Computed example of a mutant assay.
Amino acid sequence: MAAREHTALVDEGGVHVVEDAGGTRRHALHLVKLVVPVDGPLRVEREGARPLEVRAPVLTGAGVAHAIIAPGPTVTAFLPPGGLGAGAQVAVRGRVLALEGAQAERVRAAAREVLRGRLDNAAARELMTACARAFTPERPPVDRRVLRAMRRLAEQAPERPALGPLAAAEGLSRSRLSHLFHDAFGHPLRDYVTFLRVMAAVRALVDGAAPARAALAGGFHDQAHLARAVAATLGRTPGAVARSHFVQAPAAPGRMVAP
């Protein structure tokens, strides 16, 4: 039987709750992700590395390929690397990290509150904020020009990202913008563009669109192209995404609010 899942999307991040045993295929999400096993262990598999088996919250850096296996309930917070997740991204850039001590307990307590109550916009934002506050940036924040370009990119039609004009608006060349993005987040700007296209398709699926129409909404060639991109980015199939109980709906490109 499929695990019961609930998802709240807040701004460019969100919270995902799996009430039973669950897991994902190998994927590389382009957000900072904090997975909290509420009562049991957690296994994180990475290519070329030993599996990480812990009973603690696990932080994965943006763009780090991995798979998750959990025999019990989990609460996952997705933190935008240029916003709430800036400190976490610095701490985990390019790797997977198990939290310890007071840091882990604060995050686990916030996750349990989400499980005890109703997953809505306020609860999701509170958990995301609690996760973000567990980390203090150890280096200057991301270049503001990159952050502004990211915000504008999220507002564009996903199938036609105009990276050249975005860079020029910040006084940068396209190659310089790509370099600054990679330096800040540890993965290519083109992968972030793919993530935005996947999320545009996810919003269409949440609104009840058929997979073929959702593929068009994300600028993908066809349904098969969408399925490959969703699996690579989220570790799930478009059908599994559509069956998840979403408690929020899109207000504008790149933004999600409570209905």
Rank of each mutant, 00 (worst) to 15 (best):
E113Q: 13
V17W: 09
A249T: 14
I68Q: 11
G40W: 11
P188Y: 06
A258H: 14
F185H: 10
V206Q: 04
H187L: 01
E170G: 07
E126G: 15
A2V: 03
P161I: 12
Q89V: 08
L172K: 02
A162C: 13
G63F: 03
E100Q: 11
R190D: 03
P141D: 10
V38G: 11
A102I: 07
V54I: 06
R133G: 14
L127N: 11
A88R: 07
D183N: 14
H27S: 01
R46P: 03
H182M: 14
L52E: 07
A184E: 03
T129L: 14
V15Y: 03
R145I: 15
V38K: 13
P137R: 09
H182N: 12
L153M: 00
R197K: 04
V257T: 14
G23H: 07
G171T: 13
Q223M: 14
L127K: 09
E105A: 02
V38W: 08
V64F: 04
L226C: 06
L31G: 01
G14M: 00
M256C: 06
P250M: 07
F181H: 01
M199V: 05
V241H: 00
A56S: 08
H245G: 02
G254Q: 05
R160N: 13
M199F: 02
P250G: 05
H182I: 09
R93T: 09
T237Y: 07
A169V: 12
V64W: 06
P37H: 09
F181K: 02
T76D: 01
D20E: 08
D183K: 14
L226T: 04
R50M: 13
V193E: 00
